[in-house]
């Protein structure tokens, strides 16, 4: 559909061809689109979908690691983990704001999440079962997120791109604290080594799925790339990630759970076995190990907090009237 020229697309999207052509020319010149600017309705819709999903992912993403804050095994690790999970809340805040510049309200977006209508990254529907999972999440999951977010920092929508620049800087701390933990434990006591091996074994495949389906099966990719929201494909980003991580994890003495993993001399890429897409779609549709639990926790927090939000609003009104 999007290989066609602007006029055809304008007809399909019911947009003014001239405006659409100008808009696409701006993107081609590398300009940022700002909140008040003209944009196709489909651009707005896709951005709200993406940014709000991203915001929800940050907020739900607090839960798997948040469960370990009270258990962190040293004061240093406790402070690091707390600061990291706190950052995720901050990222959620920046991103909800970025989506609001497109006309969505935080309340609407939260309602959509709590009603189960909005998606968030499936990776958070897996359980964290040992302490070392926090290291694996930092190095693998945040590492994967950084690749995606570095791309989005260059995206065509100004507020999203600026939020991403800020978030990427903070994510580097997240990735590195996780990597540091995995390196140290992989050289640590037998308990620690076993814990790390187990954590990577469980998180490896779900992390590869984070980049989304293969390009051929990714319904939104075409338009997102055309309009400079995404500048690289799922498969390209995934391959970069694999190439970065495999040699480092192997240097730590960690065995990856993939008998088909091999280095392809010809292309210089590491090749993995086939990804289990049935698992991916199952988790995405709500049947992952922790979907129900994550949503229950968010709903509970929202319901428990109702009286606080109401009280703050009531107090503000009373004070204004005085």
């Amino acid at each position: 559909m999007y290989g066609a020229d602007v006029e055809q697309i304008a007809i399909q999207l019911n947009e003014d061809p001239q405006k659409l052509a100008d808009f696409e020319a701006r993107i081609a010149r590398g300009e940022k689109i700002e909140p008040g600017d003209w944009m196709p309705a489909e651009y707005r819709r896709q951005l709200i979908r993406m940014i709000s999903q991203h915001a929800h992912s940050e907020v739900v993403g607090m839960l798997p690691e948040g469960a370990w804050i009270t258990k962190a095994p040293s004061l240093r690790r406790k402070l690091i983990l707390l600061a990291k999970v706190q950052d995720e809340a901050g990222h959620g805040q920046y991103l909800y704001h970025a989506a609001e510049t497109l006309g969505a309200t935080r309340e609407e977006m939260l309602d959509a999440l709590l009603e189960g209508k909005a998606k968030y990254s499936s990776i958070f529907n897996y359980h964290t079962t040992t302490w070392a999972d926090n290291g694996a999440i930092g190095w693998l999951v945040d590492g994967a997120a950084i690749l995606n977010q570095t791309m989005l920092a260059r995206c065509s929508y100004g507020p999203y791109s600026r939020a991403m620049v800020r978030i990427c800087m903070e994510e580097n701390f997240h990735r590195k604290q996780g990597q540091e933990m995995i390196i140290l434990y992989s050289q640590g006591t037998p308990t620690q080594r076993a814990m790390v091996q187990d954590a990577i074994t469980r998180w490896w495949w779900p992390t590869l799925m984070m980049f989304g389906p293969h390009d051929a099966d990714s319904p939104n990719s075409g338009v997102l790339i055309r309009w400079g929201i995404k500048t690289r494909t799922n498969d390209e980003l995934r391959q970069d990630f694999i190439n970065q991580l495999v040699p480092d994890l192997q240097a730590c003495g960690i065995v990856l759970p993939d008998p088909d993993l091999h280095y392809d001399e010809a292309t210089g890429n590491w090749r993995t076995g086939a990804i289990d897409w049935d698992e991916f779609w199952a988790v995405l549709k709500g049947n992952g190990p922790a979907n129900a639990e994550r949503m229950a926790a968010r709903r509970q927090a929202h319901a428990d907090g109702y009286w606080v939000r109401e009280a703050a609003a009531a107090y503000a009104v009373k004070n204004q009237n005085q």
Partner: peptide, 20 residues
């Protein structure tokens, strides 16, 4: 004082080199 939030606190590149 919260220096642990700074990515420069985690010398992972050096650590990886040492491992190799």
């Amino acid at each position: 004082y919260k220096t642990y939030k700074d990515q420069a606190e985690y010398p992972v590149v050096t650590m990886m080199r040492a491992l190799r």
